[in-house]
Computed example of a mutant assay.
Amino acid sequence: MSPNLSSNLVPLTIIKGAGHEFIPLPQGQNATTADFHSVRTKTTESPAHFTSGFYKIEAGPQRPAHYNFEETKYVLSGQIDILDEATGITHHLVPGDFAFFHVGSKVKFSTKSQGFAFYAVTRPVRAPHPNLEGREEGKARL
């Protein structure tokens, strides 16, 4: 290891127990996002926020989204259907499938059952999910 690197070491952030069982849907809603970690990037020419969390959806009305940031979603369980309004194609994502949303993407999310995905976005935390706060290693009381 380079001597210069050792003086600039920063410890990892570990989130303990950040699973779907801690993410209830809001009253009267069939989908939610749960932001659980955000950081302002330091190594890019144009620093941006980098936020990650979970997306949960159950059967119900379509959930529209028009993106002014980039996002990736990786499906962990169930099925998430995404209508891409640019092409008119509905993609049926299942565990192991990955989607990338560009600035300007316009979609509608839905499912016939339920779906759960991990996401990473280039935006700050909108509202930290209360059931995930304080779950960083060293703070968690599991």
Rank of each mutant, 00 (worst) to 15 (best):
E45H: 04
T122L: 15
E133C: 12
S52K: 00
L76D: 05
S113Y: 10
T122V: 00
R135V: 05
K139L: 15
H92S: 13
P130L: 09
A99G: 02
T43Y: 08
S77Y: 06
E133P: 05
G60M: 07
L142F: 14
G19E: 13
L5C: 12
N30C: 11
F100P: 01
P130Q: 09
F54P: 01
P128Y: 14
Y55A: 01
Q79V: 15
T122A: 13
H49E: 12
A140Q: 07
N4F: 13
A117I: 00
H91W: 12
T33A: 05
K139I: 10
V75E: 01
I57F: 02
K106E: 12
P3I: 12
I57M: 04
P47I: 07
L132R: 06
A34M: 05
G28F: 14
G19S: 10
G19Q: 04
S38K: 04
E21T: 13
I89G: 02
T51V: 04
M1R: 08
K73W: 08
N4L: 14
E21W: 01
A127K: 07
M1Y: 07
T51K: 02
A34P: 00
P128S: 12
A59C: 04
T32C: 08
E58T: 14
D84F: 14
E136N: 00
H92M: 09
G138F: 09
I89W: 02
G60E: 10
V39C: 01
V103Q: 04
A48Q: 12
L132G: 02
